[in-house]
Amino acid sequence: IGSLMYASIFGNVSAIIQRLYSGTARYHTQMLRVREFIRFHQIPNPLRQRLEEYFQHAWSYTNGIDMNAVLKGFPECLQADICLHLNRSLLQHCKPFRGATKGCLRALAMKFKTTHAPPGDTLVHAGDLLTALYFISRGSIEILRGDVVVAILGKNDIFGEPLNLYARPGKSNGDVRALTYCDLHKIHRDDLLEVLDMYPEFSDHFWSSLEITFNLRDTNMIPGSPGSTELEGGFSRQRKRKLSFRRRTDKDTEQPGEVSALGPGRAGAGPSSRGRPGGPWGESPSSGPSSPESSEDEGPGRSSSPLRLVPFSSPRPPGEPPGGEPLMEDCEKSSDTCNPLSGAFSGVSNIFSFWGDSRGRQYQELPRCPAPTPSLLNIPLSSPGRRPRGDVESRLDALQRQLNRLETRLSADMATVLQLLQRQMTLVPPAYSAVTTPGPGPTSTSPLLPVSPLPTLTLDSLSQVSQFMACEELPPGAPELPQEGPTRRLSLPGQLGALTSQPLHRHGSDPG
């Protein structure tokens, strides 16, 4: 009997000691992992102490058991019943959930998450997105703005933001810190809205009876308010094209079509300037034949640059190039080494500058006005007194259609001029006259002087055409309008007829 009692007592005591040691061994194993994590990542002392304290409290609170892992091991129907039991206190005593059906309560219970916070733990920081609604079931918390405590909340209090009033989550206007050990039930806004969409009859009752104890939403960050730039940057990543407008005076608003859609830094370009900076079609017209890549860069430059609305530039004389043409100036200075066709295309550029300027006046029909002061630039669209967005969009579309028509007509005119030049060069190729044979009589004449090349004649003739079109064909006081194609086609051969009437002889060394 004594040996039996000794064996039973010894066996029970050893089993008890073994169970104690097993729990202690698990605790030390998990604690060792936490300390190894702290050492590996070199976490500083204040945060390291918070980690160790939280682990110790969580171990004593749950005995080292992962409740979520245990809950996920059950089937979904059983999980709903378990969640309904775990959140029964909240669902029974909170006013917004009263009167809900059994199915609605089960769906809500599945969406709730339980959070346990030790003292000093910050649940929400200032500036964080308010993605959830919090219900306090135990403990107390404090809300701070800077170093000032603005509120202390306790059991059955609710904090967050009214989700039904805002389409997008706002930002917190303060820090939420736990004063004691707290148990909180939180539900994400997407989950709550999903359940309320499934039960629309409960939705009206819920929003009407929901009383948020403390609204954390920062009202200064609401979209459309003066301080909402940061919020707009976070939620409006896919922005449309940006529009900046110059201020319109009362006198300017009476004149229709007073602005032109141009790229940034293009205030001095012609009315047909689009795409790359520098001139019509993204580059100076005089350098068009020598740089074919300008047409390839036109599309990307047009689509990537934001639109700006600026006044037209001052008018340019008909014979003056659009500006920024070092290529043609070098050719004029060193005409001995340049291609003979460069002079002809220089005359073509003069005609283009004249036609572009006159067509700009035809479509816009307003006098040039000086540029406004820099303080009046970049007025935002949302400022008071601005035109409605639809009106601005319609004006932009009208300007775009005008620019497209202008570009089409300029292309047709350019093709006409090039065809005339090619026809003239085919009839009378460039050549130098040879020395004529002296006559049989004693009164022999001296050799004839060489005839100037055709490109120079073409430049003079085209300059005469531009001056003739600019000065004589337009009646005084009438708006400057571009001439039609047949009129220009008839004027060019008439001007060139006198020049080509002389018999030109080919030089023996000319390969053409």
Rank of each mutant, 00 (worst) to 15 (best):
T443S: 14
T437R: 12
L427H: 10
L210R: 02
L210A: 07
F159I: 09
P493M: 14
E320L: 04
F468Q: 14
A371Q: 10
L399M: 15
D250G: 08
D147W: 01
L327V: 03
Q495K: 14
P285L: 10
S172K: 01
D191R: 02
R177W: 01
R246T: 09
G299N: 03
S314R: 11
R316K: 13
Q362K: 05
G127Y: 01
S208A: 10
D175M: 12
P169I: 09
P162V: 03
R395P: 12
P315I: 13
P256W: 09
L231Q: 10
P479Q: 06
M221I: 06
S335P: 13
S208R: 09
C471I: 05
T426N: 10
R359H: 06
S244P: 08
Y181E: 09
P226S: 13
T416M: 05
G356S: 08
S463L: 11
T426Q: 13
S291F: 15
L462N: 05
T437V: 07
L459M: 11
Q402E: 04
P453L: 08
L504R: 09
V451I: 07
G282K: 04
S394P: 11
Y199C: 01
P372Q: 13
D330V: 11
A344T: 13
L474P: 05
L481I: 08
N378K: 13
F468V: 13
A498P: 09
P447Y: 12
P271S: 14
C369R: 15
L403Y: 04
P226M: 12
V176T: 03
L163C: 10
S411P: 04
S236T: 11
R316H: 15
M425I: 09
G512T: 07
R361I: 12
E329L: 05
L165I: 11
D204H: 12
S383C: 13
G233W: 10
D204C: 10
I136E: 02
D183A: 10
V195W: 05
P318V: 12
S375R: 09
R246F: 09
G263N: 09
T131E: 11
P438V: 13
E325Q: 07
T229F: 10
A434V: 08
D190S: 07
S137G: 10
G347T: 06
S446W: 15
A478E: 13
I141F: 01
I143A: 02
P321A: 13
G263M: 10
A431D: 07
R247M: 11
Q495R: 10
N378L: 03
G356V: 09
L165G: 12
S394G: 13
S290W: 05
C338W: 12
D175Q: 15
V259R: 09
E472Q: 07
L130Y: 01
Q419V: 07
D413V: 01
I141A: 03
F214V: 07
P429H: 15
Y181Q: 06
L327M: 01
R405S: 04
S346R: 12
T229G: 10
F312M: 06
P442D: 08
P479C: 10
L403K: 03
G439T: 05
P223Y: 08
G270N: 14
T500W: 10
E258K: 07
D175Y: 07
T373K: 07
G288T: 15
G127W: 01
L492S: 09
L459K: 13
I212A: 02
C338L: 09
S294N: 13
S358L: 09
G347N: 07
G139R: 01
L327P: 04
E480C: 09
E194C: 09
R401N: 15
S334M: 09
L496E: 10
A431V: 12
Y166T: 09
L144R: 11
P374L: 09
N220E: 13
H507D: 05
K251M: 10
L179S: 06
P455H: 07
P440E: 13
L130Q: 01
T458A: 09
H205V: 10
T337E: 11
S353D: 05
F354P: 08
M328H: 13
P285H: 11
L427P: 04
P322I: 15
R389N: 04
Y166R: 06
G270Q: 15
T131V: 09
T337N: 04
A371K: 12
E365I: 08
Q362F: 12
L327Q: 13
S209R: 10
R247A: 08
E332D: 12
L396T: 05
A178P: 03
V435F: 09
G439S: 11
A267K: 09
L376H: 07
I351V: 09
E296A: 11
M221Q: 11
R138T: 11
R506K: 11
V149M: 09
P486E: 15
R395D: 03
Q483V: 08
T456G: 10
S244C: 10
F135H: 01
R389H: 13
L366T: 10
R361H: 15
L396Q: 05
T437G: 08
P200Y: 02
G508P: 14
E407S: 04
L410I: 08
H188P: 06
A132L: 03
L179D: 01
S137N: 11
R248H: 13
F159P: 01
G512W: 01
D510K: 07
F135D: 02
L163E: 03
D413Y: 01
D510P: 12
A269V: 12
N350L: 02
V150S: 03
E473P: 13
S203D: 07
Y166P: 04
T437L: 08
R241H: 11
S203L: 04
S313T: 10
P486S: 11
